[in-house]
């Protein structure tokens, strides 16, 4: 490969160029016996027949951002979905949809990032696919990963186990990923101080699940942020949630960027955080477990599950002692005019 080389449509055509792309550029980064077979399906021997299975597609723009890139995100995002469901991530698939003309150098960078992130998390990429599309039919590169995890025994997570009095823990500051992406995309001047929290929370979640049945439910608050996750918990459990604004950890630069654009940080995406609903008596222990993990240093108990009066609702007690509802976000925050 020479500097400036680009992906051609023929790289996805199934012939020599495809073969070269796969053997010389993709496979070397993900060495493992299952993938090396290059059969139509990966044959897996898992520790348990009880598994979690998930899939997610990644279309982030910009592809490279402070704190990560689309490759790291594609591995961590799927691992995190497996982890918060109470499983140990075991294997991932990797599908690439690449726009004709995409630079090889950038593809290599993304593939390296995918390989490193998977290795760091003891997860193998066991199967995959590569397609190329005409210029304009995709935006540079889209990635899909699907993942399988083996379920931890003795762990039963679900909204049905939530009851009044349970405590809500967030594993760290909120809104870092979303504000980093938005700021970088919009060219906001203090973007250099913002850093995505993109990370795998698999180890953290496994440590928490060491508390066994004390942990009732977990979610990673990605799109829609903490507000969407709490509303989902509310809806699924039929209980209400009360959170305390003073306990929610927010990086001041994230807050400043959100204020400038008129965004509510509660609605902004995270990519390396977990929300856990735990029993009241185990809450302090769970908090200490989080804080003992590098990713959970700023973990906080932000509120609790309460009985529903009228309809299930997430309510926040604000810094000045007021109360307000935290709604499910519409889907997209729009920057305001002034």
């Amino acid at each position: 490969m020479k500097k400036g080389d680009k992906i051609l449509l023929a790289h996805g055509g199934g012939g020599q160029l495809s073969d070269e792309l796969i053997r010389h550029h993709i496979l070397p980064g993900f060495k493992n016996d299952v993938l090396a077979e290059l059969s139509d399906s990966a044959k897996l021997n898992l520790a348990s027949s009880s598994i979690c299975f998930t899939t997610d597609s990644y279309v982030v723009k910009p592809l490279f951002f402070n704190g990560g890139d689309i490759g790291k995100l594609a591995v961590c995002g799927t691992i995190n979905d497996l982890a918060v469901a109470g499983s140990v991530p075991a294997a991932l698939s990797l599908s690439l949809i690449i726009e004709e003309g995409f630079e090889f150098e950038l593809l290599e960078k993304i593939l390296t990032s995918i390989g490193e992130t998977a290795r760091q998390n003891d997860v193998d990429i066991v199967t995959g696919d590569t397609k190329t599309v005409e210029a304009g039919a995709a935006d540079k590169i889209f990635i899909n990963t699907a993942g399988i995890g083996t379920r931890l025994t003795g762990i039963d997570l679900g909204p049905n186990r939530i009851e009044a009095g349970d405590k809500i823990i967030i594993s760290g500051t909120i809104g870092d990923h979303g504000m980093t992406i938005i700021s970088q995309r919009e060219g906001i001047k203090f973007q250099s101080k913002l850093k995505s929290d993109c990370a795998s929370i698999a180890k953290l979640s496994r440590q928490l699940l060491g508390k066994g049945q004390s942990v009732k439910f977990m979610r990673d608050p990605t799109r829609g942020g903490l507000a969407a996750t709490l509303n989902e918990i509310c809806r699924a459990s039929a209980f209400s949630i009360e959170i305390d604004e003073t306990e929610i950890p927010i990086n001041p630069t994230v807050q400043a960027a959100a204020d400038m654009l008129g965004f509510d940080v509660l609605n902004i995406a995270n990519e390396g955080k977990l929300v856990a609903v735990v029993s009241a008596e185990s809450a302090d222990d769970c908090l200490n477990i989080c804080r003992g993990n590098g990713l959970g240093k700023e973990a906080s108990i932000i509120g609790e599950v309460v009985q529903t009066c009228d309809v299930p609702v997430v309510e926040m007690i604000t810094k000045i002692g007021g109360r307000r509802i935290v709604q499910m976000p519409y889907g997209r925050e729009l920057p305001r005019i002034c």
Binding site: M316, I317, T318, I320, G322, R324
Partner: peptide, 8 residues
Amino acid sequence: FRCGLRST
């Protein structure tokens, strides 16, 4: 609204 001022 965000700070719940009306309720105070």
